[in-house]
Design a protein around this nucleic acid. Sequence first.
RNA 1: GUGAGUGUAGCUCAGUUGGCAGAGCACCAGGUUGUGGCCCUGGUGGCCGUGGGUUCAAGUCCCAUCACUCACCCCA
Length: 437
Amino acid sequence: MIQLIRGFKDILPNEIELWKHIEQTAMMLFESFGFRQIRIPVLEKAELFQRSIGEHTDIVEKEMYTFPTSKGELITLRPEATASVVRSYIQQRLYAKDPIQKLYTIGPMFRKERPQKGRYRQFYQINAEAFGVSSPYMDAQLIFMLTVFFQRLSITGLKVHLNSLGCPACRPAFKRALSEMLMERSDALCSECIRRRGTNPLRVLDCKVPGCQEVVKNAPAITDYLCEDCARHFDEVKASLGRMDIPYEVSPRLVRGLDYYTRTAFEIQTDELGAQNAVAGGGRYDNLVEALGGPSQPAIGFAIGLDRLVDLALTKTRVPELPPDIFIAAMGEAARQKAFEWSCELGREGVKTEVDFSSRSLKALMKRANRLGAGHVLIVGDQELDQGTAILRNMRTKAQAQIEISGILSGIKGQLRAASDRQPYEDGQTNTPKPKT
RNA sequence: GUGAGUGUAGCUCAGUUGGCAGAGCACCAGGUUGUGGCCCUGGUGGCCGUGGGUUCAAGUCCCAUCACUCACCCCA
């Protein structure tokens, strides 16, 4: 048997209803906030990610799927979406029409990590990026939008972690102070952190090795080193969140693994998913557009981890079920021929129809209709064809009605409409079993 | 990349000191000759992850390998 690749997975129809529900919720909400969808490629030049994410990040150092083309150019399966959206913003000159662009995108990302709960080598994200706005209101609005999103899905138990990473004006001073402090405490650091200390000292801050945490406890806080502008920005983000009653926690050791972040960084975490607790994360990247060869435009964005969100939503979010409106149970070849024609017509007209073309007993057909959760069954055999009528059974009330075969399609639609008027969409109190795949 | 755990029917799992591979659910059929769910009866379904070794005999013991799971690292 050929198996799928390690860390990859199939998402089966049973789960897709939930995925669609989540995606549609996001799209509707984000569009209410002025975001528009963009679709970007899954493959990009390796250089795009190296330059945006940063050479000394875990992602670039060891997690990217990178291949040479036949011409020898290195291309990479995107490990994240922001770089591509920025590339598109620049390449398509979206800024020329209007520097303010609010964009969202949904799709798979790829990172070659060891898989575990909530972490796959192909995983899905919803990304939102806002270009051309430097105001802290934008930061707060994005976070607000995220919290509304999770509320709509009835996801509870989330916590917003907030930090500011400063800017090129103030971060170096902090880095220096941190680096010096880490040098003094070399004895207590893990080997990984000793290596990182030189290349990317910020990363030592969120190391979970007990020894390192002990050291980090007494480390300087970046929020104490912010320059005046960054401090004011951070204060305004916090005040704005407060104004909208968004609870948050300032986490001075939240640094995030991508180099391009400036100022605001945030993560939305849960404690219900095991070790992989970040459901969404993002931050401001005011220098990235220019660094990748575009105009000097600020930007901020976030990514939602769909796989993890689906895990949470599995127990929390109600998804409307969509069982068939009607199942056609036909006995005998002549009846099956009719069933074929009617099911084609009903499907074309948007009536959710199931039919079984095999020659099985009525009992077996009824059983199948029941299992599929069909609201009605149309029963037709030689007797019915002779009489020019068929039987329409309401599976919930068990009521059966004769229905004329001439003009049967409009007859069926009328009956279904009447039944759903009497029994409007409720909160799933029917005893129809969940359809299986 | 590192560590631990688990691989037996479609699914969840039993399988004793090594001795004929099992249960529940699901599926199919019958009980009811043309009417679903509940009940009863029967049936289909297995390279016991794979390869090697020990043994008269291996699902069981040993070695290797692959896969999955969880955790570390890091993040969505």
